[in-house]
Amino acid sequence: MSVPLSILDLAPVSAGSNPRQALRNSVDLARHAEDWGYHRYWLAEHHFVAVASSSTITLIGQVAAATKRIRVGSAAVQAGFHTSAAIVEAFGTIDAFHPGRLDLGLGRSAHRRAQLNTLKAPASDRARPPVRTENIVRDGVVVPPPFDPSRLADASRFVAALDALIPEGAKAPPFADQVAEVIALLDGTFTTADGTALHAVPGEGAQVEVWLFGSSGGESAALAGRLGLPFAAAYHVAPGSSLDAVDAYRAAFRPSRFLAEPYVVISADAVVAADDATARAHAEGYGHWVHSIRGGGGATEYPAPNSVPPLTPEQRGLIQDRLDTQFVGAPATVVERLSALQRVTDADEVLVTTITHDHADRLESYRLLAEAWGLRTARAA
């Protein structure tokens, strides 16, 4: 039987629409996803861009209230922007209404102040370690060269966002320490540096699963393995290094009270339609949308099909890895590619993110994929 299939949602804002509608679309998609047999519905945290999931935990509560069975969670709460207590209390509040359905995913994107000097430095002064320049293909899975962050056209907006989200003088604890704090607050074993015991109310004892997210074979993957936590690898964002993240996680894994064996979720970007040509039409605009992120301006409103000019060679060069690894086509086409990704990574679950301009096209994409993956059949069994 196929592994479970889940959804990652950014609550994208389409050109001509607004954040209010994007949020309503997310809740609507979650209701359908539950009916179609998807296992989880996760929401991503992004700020100061044209996606509406910035207050991720608030939206998780709305999705949980609108559904009955599907697991709901974060992919991921950027821990450096929040105190551990605030995260646990918020999840504990939602769990009080919807016990046993929440996944608390933690990411370290916000723990990047150490990178600011590098990002602020002139491109000519940045160290650029040698990397391969050509795609490799592993059993049908494209693994492009890892993306070099120094290629960002303009990092000033990213730096400004970090400055706005983290108060002047504030310093987030190391990511490993913050993960330990979250677990201790959930367990009821948290103490301050001076030995004072504190208890999260609500939060302590909440039936929440803690996950870590990563896109390379670095700190997050190794930490998830050492702690014996489930791990999600972001192929959809970092296709050149996410397979390294899976390998690093498994190499570091130690059995724990959470898991006896490693548990891996692998993500992919996909657009499905009745036929390949229609799917390609629905995916138009994706390249410009990704370029808006890597170009330094942040994710723009998702453009309508045929509303953007062809990508220039320079634009395409900055995002070619993402174009090569977006799964676009008829159900059989996309299932074949997703199955190859699952097989190569030996993932226990596949997480799909789909962005189209029209909400109806996004719904149809997920519906067709669920049917082709056999979700309804598996649920009926």
Rank of each mutant, 00 (worst) to 15 (best):
S2H: 15
V3S: 05
P4W: 10
L8M: 01
L8W: 00
D9A: 01
A15F: 12
G16E: 01
N18C: 14
S26R: 06
A30S: 03
A30H: 00
R31A: 10
H39K: 09
H39G: 08
L43N: 03
V49K: 07
T56N: 04
I60N: 02
G61P: 08
A66V: 06
T67M: 09
K68H: 15
R69F: 14
I70R: 00
I70E: 03
R71H: 02
S74K: 07
A76W: 00
Q78W: 04
A79S: 11
G80W: 06
F81E: 11
S84C: 11
V88W: 00
V88Y: 05
E89G: 11
E89A: 13
A90C: 09
G92P: 02
D95H: 03
D95G: 04
F97L: 13
F97V: 12
R101G: 03
L102V: 07
L102D: 02
D103I: 02
G105T: 05
L106P: 05
R108W: 05
T118K: 13
A123Y: 15
S124W: 15
S124F: 15
R126E: 14
R126N: 12
R128D: 13
V131M: 15
V131R: 15
R132I: 12
E134M: 10
N135I: 04
V137Y: 15
R138C: 12
G140P: 10
V141C: 01
V143W: 08
P145K: 03
P145A: 07
A153E: 14
A153W: 15
S156I: 11
S156Q: 11
F158Y: 15
A161L: 15
L162R: 05
L162Y: 09
A164N: 09
I166T: 11
G169L: 14
A172Y: 06
V182H: 01
T189A: 08
F190R: 00
T196N: 12
A197E: 12
L198R: 08
V201K: 07
A206V: 03
Q207C: 13
S215H: 08
S216C: 11
S220Y: 10
L223K: 08
R226S: 12
R226E: 14
A232V: 02
A233M: 01
V237F: 03
P239E: 13
G240S: 08
S242V: 03
A245W: 02
A245N: 01
V246Y: 05
A248Q: 09
Y249I: 09
A252G: 10
A260P: 14
P262L: 01
Y263G: 03
A268M: 10
A268W: 01
V271Q: 02
V271D: 05
V271N: 04
A274C: 14
D276C: 04
R280T: 07
R280P: 07
A283H: 00
H291D: 07
H291F: 08
S292T: 02
G297Y: 09
G297L: 09
A299V: 05
T300L: 12
P305M: 00
P309N: 10
L311V: 07
E314T: 10
R316W: 14
L318Y: 00
I319W: 02
R322E: 12
T325A: 00
Q326I: 15
V328Q: 04
D346N: 09
A347I: 05
D348K: 05
E349K: 09
V350C: 06
T353E: 08
H359A: 02
H359N: 04
A360I: 01
L363I: 05
R367W: 10
R367Q: 13
L368D: 01
E371W: 07
W373D: 04
A378G: 13
